[in-house]
Amino acid sequence: MEFIDYYKVLELNNTATEAEIKKAYRKLARKYHPDLNPNDANAKKKFQQINEANEVLSDPEKRKKYDQYGKDWKHADEFNNYQRSQSNKQQSERSSQQWGGGDFSGEDFSDFFGSMFGGQGNGRRSQTKFRGQDFNAELQLSLSDVFTTHKQTLTVNGKSIRITIPAGVENGQVIKIAGHGGEGVNGGPNGDLYITFSIVNNTKFKREGSNLFSEVELDLYTAVLGGDITIDTFDGKVKLPVKAETQNGMKVKLKGKGFPVYKREGEFGDLYVTFKINTPINLSEKEKELFKELSKIRNNGN
């Protein structure tokens, strides 16, 4: 466990006044506050450090203890004995801006803080009822998993929750499970659980919303003369008639053969198939002759 220089954290020197500490804290908090930096783990960490520094330096008792024993925190107990002998001393009023609830409770403080001050910080609105902390979890699924609605059991903070994952859920989509977050503070309601889906595409199909895109290789003769081919759809195979004189890069739409539309049971997007024409290789003499004949009929093959 390392010593934390709280003055350095708040970019102050150790002669800073209460007003300077408050100003520095607010300035840095406005920069790193998680409400202003959503999904930024670095900002959250930095904010916790700022919060902890403020918790100590804005409280005259804690600051005194820190100034005296901070670098030698192992001797903090001696300080506590001294404190007890001063028991008549009036408790100073706090002006700390530590959260009453929300995302940042005492448990976010460092081990260093815990050793010196016993963990929990005080709260400005400590008697205020606050909703519990919202939990965020990421659930990784494959694209084929989300083609059908299914149930899955998750373990969040030691509790098992069985959730239904609707078909067609998007990569990055967040669903809220009300009341499954942290417990409320001072009798406030529980927070919510937010699950972000991370969907890994394990297929040859590209997905945009409920539409799917795929590439199908076509031999030269079928492209030129037309014919039926069998292609893969997401959940099976279908016979697809290819028109004569199909060009390379041409697209066809297979209506309703795409991905399920989220929360619209029985509705599907479309599948867009792009043809990629393969010209023959390793031609026999006979084939070469015939192609030459063809080229005489039509200059440049166009």
């Binding site: 607010r26 908090a29 409400d35 959260w99 929300g102 606050f130 909703r131």
Partner: peptide, 24 residues
């Protein structure tokens, strides 16, 4: 409520005024 709690924190803890909350 979530949004409101956020606004309470911005206003009371970070000293951001209404115009600031609106912009944020």
């Amino acid at each position: 409520l979530n949004e409101l709690e956020k606004m309470i924190r911005l206003h009371y803890d970070l000293n951001i005024n209404m115009e600031g909350i609106e912009a944020v």
